[in-house]
Amino acid sequence: MTRNTATSIGFVAVLLWALLALFTAGSEPVPPFLLNAMTFTIASIIGVIWVLARGRVSVLRPVPWTIYAFGTAGLFGYHALYYSALRLAPPAEAGLIAYLWPLLIVLFSGLLPGERLRTGHIVGALVSFGGAALIVSRGGLSLESAATPGLILAAFCALTWSSYSVLSRRMDDTPTEVVTVYCIATAILSVPAHLAFETTVWPDSNIAWLSVLALGLGPVGLAFYVWDIGVKRGDIQLLGVASYAAPLLSTLVLIAAGIAQVSWQLLVAAVLISFGAGIAAMASRDS
């Protein structure tokens, strides 16, 4: 597989993640950990079928347990935070905050051996976080706001996924089939978490059931496998650039679906986040 092909495959994940906020909102009233269990079970089935069809079960045996623990922590942690954020804050605002992960990928990859942080990285970070601050404040910051806990969780989402992606780059000799194990472990861990912290509430409409299925097949299923191929074998900087379209696409999808309202704060914040991330990405490509 060529580097360009791997990058193109990784870009499929970006398109799928643009639908994550919409399907998560549509899955209400399912609580976060139960949603995690349901969607990752579907993602696991996809992976098991893929691994068995290719006869690649043997490649999973020599992989160290630490790799499996790392991947499980990344997937389980990110989605538990993300689903909770979208339950506690408006989907558009929480989604945009969570989508700071492309910027953080650029910043963190600049700190890897052989890379260095340039002025453009810092400027881009300030511009994008300015957009995030505009969303959080919406005319005035208030720590007593009901949405604040959700927005904080969304920020941790960004940190979790960017760390997972950049560290995965350093594990480029690990086969993508390990993502199947990550998904299985995440689904299993979500069950006791659900029983301990949540009341079981199943989807109460066809839209909710279809949203859960769509999540498991796309943004929480196929997306992880193609993303793993992209970040390990493709151009992670170009994937970072491509990922900056996701906040805008996600917000436009929510507006089109009638879930989010058009406002100048939301639109300006989306432009700032994407513009700042683009500045940082160009600095990385010039390194």
Rank of each mutant, 00 (worst) to 15 (best):
L15V: 12
L16R: 01
W17G: 06
L19A: 08
L20G: 05
L22M: 10
F23L: 15
A25C: 00
S27H: 04
S27Q: 08
E28N: 12
P31Y: 05
P32F: 14
L34K: 07
L35R: 15
N36M: 15
N36H: 10
A37P: 09
M38D: 02
A43C: 07
S44P: 03
S44Q: 06
I45P: 02
G47E: 12
G47A: 08
G47P: 11
V51G: 03
L52Y: 02
G55M: 10
R56Y: 05
R56D: 14
S58E: 14
V59Y: 08
L60G: 13
R61I: 15
R61D: 05
W65R: 14
W65S: 12
I67F: 10
Y68Q: 04
Y68C: 07
A69M: 12
F70N: 06
F70M: 11
T72L: 10
A73H: 02
F76H: 11
F76Q: 03
L81R: 00
Y82S: 01
Y83N: 07
Y83A: 00
Y83K: 03
A85T: 02
L86S: 01
L86V: 07
L88H: 10
A89K: 08
P90T: 10
P91V: 01
P91E: 00
A92Q: 08
A92R: 09
E93V: 07
A94G: 02
A94S: 05
G95E: 02
G95A: 06
L96F: 00
Y99M: 11
L100R: 07
W101N: 09
P102D: 07
L103P: 04
L103F: 06
V106K: 04
L107T: 02
L107C: 10
G110S: 14
L111C: 09
L111N: 04
L112K: 15
P113S: 09
P113E: 12
P113I: 12
G114T: 10
E115M: 12
G120T: 11
A125S: 13
L126W: 10
L126Y: 03
A132V: 12
A133F: 13
L134S: 05
V136R: 02
V136P: 02
